[in-house]
Design a protein around this nucleic acid. Structure first.
Lengths: 217, 217
DNA sequence: GCCCTGCTTCGAGGGAGATCGAAGGATCCG
DNA sequence: CGGATCCTTCGATCTCCCTCGAAGCAGGGC
């Protein structure tokens, strides 16, 4: 019993591991590279920490293509993190900021080079349909993209990227990259300086709904 | 936030500290020497660990005479320990054994050289009355002690030892030592080999009630 | 099929902290 | 007041493990 408490404590004791667990605190699943960036350590170091967390039963890992998605092993781990946070010196400002930040990330963020989050899923709904493992641009979708200056032909297939927050696919690959780039040029979306969150501008709200036919979440 | 999670984790990560926290898990307050024994480390090492746990807000310390009693800092710490135990690999046998052991300790144990726990409090009720900071042997109590072969005169004062499990005083000092020694000689009580728990024999049950006038808890 | 990307393994270096013996302050007992 | 007990501080030693660069494996995009 005591040895187990100590071993769980040791897993929490490393700042890099603590950051990883907190980044996954809302139940998301994130790939190793992103977690390395969150923790501020190199890829080898992150890999080492992630292996230990999986081995200790705090994380689960799912291979999907060349990505490996890590997530909390269950509700009991989330409860553990909350119990620890309750004991740790309270920092209401920080926790509030991370709270709103997490919310913004869930809403809209960039995933490497394309759009993700709820908005990413909503955009995908407006433009493509699932076709096996990939996505296929619809006629309507091609027309809408043309209207905002993104060249793409109906029936073109786009790579699907699974959004682990929403458990839904969204548009990645070349089409996803072109689309995000155009949305930023139009200033319908704005990058955040510090996080991967994206902000929808007023013009973007109008444009996304009327021109792209997106139902904003 | 992350730094705090890591610091709390670091406090749990050391086996000696984990043992200390688990020993205090039921809310008892124990002196430093006893915790050093529980953790299996030397007194200086235990002192070092206890200072860190107090500094980290997981324990509180109360000086009482030359003893320093350590206890969990609050309910939130107990909940933290439970959350950790829930994540740690379950070992039902061990937890059951520690559970019954803790129960036995609460019921009757020796505290250095005298009787403590609920039984210790009950014995004190039958023999002494509080008089300022110490205890005074009553006429009835002196008679009962004489009946089992412990020489003591009425009005004699005995050192009071606060039982942190029961938040009540019991008899320590010379009188407490003589009494425990006699109860073991009579085989009314038996020592445990591994813990400080004491077992009440059948003869002891009868003798304590009829001859010492103790109301067994 | 070639290259690129994501991730892991390996090896060496370095820093944080756990441990105990010895010694000192504090308190109590007789 | 003298001896004993409880606890802490100090200093030296040592072990654990965190860290990153280099290299290797695997899967995808084009």
């Amino acid at each position: 019993m005591n040895a187990d408490v100590a071993s769980v404590g040791a897993l929490l004791a490393e700042p890099a591991r603590a950051k990883v667990l907190l980044a996954l605190g809302d139940g998301r699943a994130l790939p190793a590279t992103m977690l390395a960036a969150e923790a501020g350590v190199s890829a080898p170091t992150a890999s080492h920490h992630l292996a230990r967390l999986v081995d200790g039963g705090l994380l689960t890992v799912t291979s999907r293509g060349r990505h490996r998605y890590y997530a909390l092993a269950g509700q009991h781990v989330a409860e553990l993190l909350e119990a620890v946070a309750r004991v740790a010196p309270a920092q209401p400002v920080t926790s509030l900021r991370t709270g709103t930040r997490a919310h913004a990330l869930r809403y809209a963020r960039h995933c490497y080079d394309h759009l993700a989050g709820r908005l990413g899923v909503a955009v995908a709904d407006a433009l493509v349909v699932a076709r096996g493992d990939s996505l296929e641009l619809t006629d309507v979708g091609a027309g809408r993209l043309a209207a905002i200056g993104v060249g793409a032909s109906a029936g073109e297939s786009a790579r699907a990227c699974l959004d682990w927050t929403e458990q839904r696919h969204h548009v990645a690959g070349g089409l996803g990259r072109s689309l995000l780039q155009r949305l930023l040029e139009l200033e319908w979306l704005q990058r955040s300086d510090v996080t991967r969150a994206l902000r929808v501008t007023d013009a973007g709200r109008t444009g996304l709904e009327t021109e792209l036919g997106v139902t904003l979440p």
